[in-house]
């Protein structure tokens, strides 16, 4: 039995909790989304650990430039304001794309979850309770992912590893 069969069996197990097909689907998808949120946040914390000094330095510089531009606005110094803004533009670019890399580190598991769901649920319509709408697996996973993030965010600071990470930030 290889690792893929074990993983596949485990994920399928998430979809067989109550025995009611539709409810099982929604519970399974939510749990799958929660796992992707957990793994994603873990890898983000690794990235943050490795590059923390870099992010801290960049953000400090950005905050500094922000203060300066505010001072320029107060003093109605247009040329100073423009110069600081231009400097901030470069720093902001680095922060922006640094954040893009960081967000890739917490989003990647969600795409593997969707890849796992695709051959199993593609073409199936899932009725959404009370609305009468039919949604596909992508939409239901997206909603489950947002819910999982909402559930995980307040719990995160109390979990052992993530508590330390939150303190570091």
């Amino acid at each position: 039995m290889n690792w893929w069969t074990v993983l596949d069996g485990f994920l399928v197990g998430l979809y067989r909790i109550t025995g009611w097909t539709l409810i099982d689907y929604f519970i399974g998808t939510f749990l799958l989304a929660l796992i992707t949120v957990l793994i994603g946040d873990f890898t983000t914390s690794l990235v943050y650990l490795v590059n923390r000094p870099y992010f801290v330095r960049l953000n400090a510089r950005l905050a500094e430039l922000h203060e300066l531009s505010m001072a320029a606005l107060r003093l109605k110094n247009k040329s100073g304001y423009r110069a600081v803004n231009r400097e901030a533009n470069d720093t902001f670019g680095l922060v922006f794309f640094g954040m893009a890399g960081l967000s890739a580190s917490y989003l990647w598991p969600a795409f593997f979850a969707l890849a796992w769901m695709q051959p199993r649920f593609q073409g199936i319509g899932f009725p959404l309770f009370l609305t009468g709408w039919i949604a596909n697996y992508t939409f239901t996973f997206l909603v489950a992912y947002i819910l999982a993030r909402l559930v995980f965010a307040p719990v995160k600071p109390y979990l052992p590893y993530f508590r330390q990470m939150t303190a570091l930030k």
Binding site: G101, A104, S105, L107, W108, F111, L114, A115
Partner: peptide, 23 residues
């Protein structure tokens, strides 16, 4: 159509690349 696994692999590469970049 979307190839989810390809996007997943690429996102992993992107975050590793963006970790290496600043160094």
């Amino acid at each position: 159509a979307v190839d989810w696994a390809l996007i997943g692999v690429e996102l992993v590469g992107i975050f590793i690349g963006s970790m290496v970049g600043p160094r």
